[in-house]
Design a protein around this nucleic acid. Structure first.
Lengths: 235, 235
DNA sequence: CCCAAATTGTCGCTGAAACGACAATCTTTT
DNA sequence: AAAAGATTGTCGTTTCAGCGACAATTTGGG
């Protein structure tokens, strides 16, 4: 894995892009590339795994309830980091992280994270800013999930996926990532059949086309309008 | 406000209780008591207000959607801190904080927060640990809200309120805090009528008694069983 | 190339939440 | 004490998610 490629992917992350060049270089120098294929990255009870960035492929963060039902699912985007909280406070992650399919990671070991973060207050506070970013995003998620209906959540999630994992083609933005309707359902917290119904209705309106474990957004603008208009407060 | 009282209330918070004595003392020395009555503590766009702890009364954290509907509501407990994220990264809070009724706060100004946090890595990292705690709690909230039904959420919220704001009497635990059914509804993200129905049903079962803007839990154990059994995954 | 497994399409039923509406009750203000 | 405002109790209607069920389709492994 070429350093330039790494730098490009990591640079898509706002936090990384805003780092002092010398810290960014330090991370690039001390981190190591890991390749995984359908493997557990860390489990909920692990800690001190340092920080891990997704370079390509996908990472799913899940949490399971007592009976083993998946109860939470986030898909990370290339360039984004996981494990920050545990790296900073040394306590367990509290959720599992899986690499789905051929996945390339960039890992800054706990030891090296410590040495970088301990080098100066500027470094330390840079990592704290990342945690703050994550916290704000999670709070936003909480607010949104309490106040919106499935169609809005689906539109939102599709746009998000398109933005981060989509490929532009002449037919639209293709999202191709072994993402079943079941997965989507768990991600936004509704039943599988609901997703199916919503996707079909979007397909009828010519907004998306679906196929086996993949999907193409034909009309991004329509989806964005949907996201904007579905706010139940705005009726 | 007596320092001993302050110390006792703040000590109910696990984070504060676990601080190195010298940092805890520093916070006590540098912070200032503020008394408010039905007033805005800070608004979503404010930043750099330092850190604020609730001593007595209540603080509601809310966020409003475009049309002005309340879209989020957390009630903090005496001893807990707010504003940590903004204090650490200097960016806007993203939510409003209101003092409801006669409220006593303990505020560590941004300037003094900076000087304490900047004093040593141990201090700084102590504040970071608080942020980590908040992050984990919020993530937990998100998981719970995606997977549970209103009755569970209500039972959970009532027990939480009882724990933090309740007073033991011979009739049970009284929660008296100008908390309307409307407020409860917004807090757990359901309609007001749903709360009314659930409360009535709990009242019929002799678990709670309700009155104007207050409520008494007569049977805490029953409510706890409800919370435990309502996990839809466990059926 | 065939079979097993995974995924998708679709029904229909059930339950329950949302919401508007409005009366009743309680509190605060004047 | 009366009026205004806030809160609660309760309709009834509508909408919609959950879920079981099962067939159809697609994919991957042997």
């Amino acid at each position: 894995m070429n350093k330039t490629v790494l730098k490009t992917v990591l640079g898509r992350n706002k936090w990384f892009a805003g780092l002092p060049p010398e810290l960014a270089d330090g991370i690039l120098r001390l981190g190591r590339v890991r390749r995984l294929n359908d493997a557990l990255i860390y489990s909920a009870s692990d800690c001190a795994d340092g920080m891990i960035a997704l370079i390509s492929g996908q990472i799913r963060l899940t949490s399971f309830s007592v009976s083993g039902q998946p109860s939470f699912l986030v898909l990370t985007s290339p360039g984004s980091w996981i494990g920050t909280t545990s790296a900073l406070d040394g306590r367990p992650h509290g959720y599992d992280a899986f690499a789905i399919g051929e996945t390339v990671l960039f890992q800054l070991s706990q030891e090296r994270f410590n040495s970088l973060a301990g080098e100066s207050v500027e470094h330390y506070s840079a990592f704290v800013r990342l945690l703050c970013d994550h916290f704000r995003i999670t709070t936003q998620y909480l607010i949104i999930h309490r106040n919106h209906r499935p169609l809005y959540l689906l539109a939102r999630e599709l746009l998000r996926l398109a933005d981060r994992h989509g490929k532009r083609t002449k037919n639209g933005v293709v999202i191709e990532m072994r993402l079943s309707q079941e997965d989507l359902a768990v991600m936004i917290g509704v039943g599988r059949q609901t997703i199916n119904r919503l996707l079909k209705s979007l397909e009828q309106d010519g907004i998306v086309t679906t196929s086996y474990t993949s999907l193409t957004i034909q009309n991004v603008e329509a989806l964005e309008r949907l996201r904007a208009s579905e706010d139940p407060d705005e009726v």
